[in-house]
Amino acid sequence: MNIASSSDPKTGVRVWPAHVRALEASGLSRREYCRRQHLSYHALTYWVRKLRQTSGSALPPALVEVPTCSTLLLRRSCPP
């Protein structure tokens, strides 16, 4: 049975994380990985996003330095 067409959600939860890890380790594009593994590109993209959301592996938001009055005083541009 082709996992790309499997309608059993439990099969996906067991099988797709392994494909996502293998994709990352392969260095291939998603399209090329899917072609070589005979997988649905859209299904793999779904699982990449789903697993990224649940694992929290998404990049954290960038931090931005906000000047305070004390740092502005050093530059002599802080209002009195």
Score class of each variant (00 low, 15 high):
residue 26 S to D: 03
residue 33 Y to L: 08
residue 68 T to E: 14
residue 50 K to G: 01
residue 26 S to R: 04
residue 70 S to L: 12
residue 7 S to Q: 13
residue 42 H to A: 15
residue 58 A to H: 13
residue 19 H to L: 04
residue 12 G to E: 06
residue 10 K to R: 14
residue 33 Y to D: 02
residue 78 C to L: 11
residue 72 L to S: 04
residue 53 Q to D: 05
residue 62 A to V: 11
residue 57 S to C: 08
residue 39 L to F: 05
residue 33 Y to R: 04
residue 2 N to P: 15
residue 75 R to Y: 08
residue 32 E to G: 05
residue 61 P to R: 15
residue 59 L to M: 13
residue 44 L to N: 00
residue 55 S to N: 11
residue 34 C to F: 00
residue 70 S to D: 12
residue 19 H to Y: 14
residue 8 D to E: 08
residue 21 R to M: 05
residue 24 E to L: 11
residue 70 S to R: 12
residue 1 M to C: 09
residue 6 S to I: 02
residue 66 V to M: 10
residue 57 S to Y: 07
residue 80 P to G: 11
residue 40 S to W: 03
residue 46 Y to G: 05
residue 76 R to G: 07
residue 12 G to W: 12
residue 7 S to R: 14
residue 40 S to I: 03
residue 39 L to H: 00
residue 17 P to V: 02
residue 47 W to E: 00
residue 64 V to R: 12
residue 5 S to K: 08
residue 28 L to G: 00
residue 37 Q to V: 01
residue 19 H to A: 00
residue 28 L to R: 06
residue 48 V to R: 10
residue 58 A to K: 09
residue 37 Q to P: 01
residue 80 P to I: 07
residue 4 A to Q: 03
residue 24 E to D: 04
residue 43 A to H: 10
residue 23 L to D: 00
residue 36 R to P: 01
residue 23 L to R: 02
residue 4 A to W: 03
residue 55 S to M: 02
residue 30 R to G: 06
residue 57 S to F: 05
residue 38 H to R: 14
residue 22 A to D: 11
residue 28 L to E: 02
residue 42 H to S: 15
residue 23 L to N: 03
residue 26 S to H: 07
residue 61 P to L: 15
residue 54 T to F: 06
residue 44 L to Q: 01
residue 74 L to V: 11
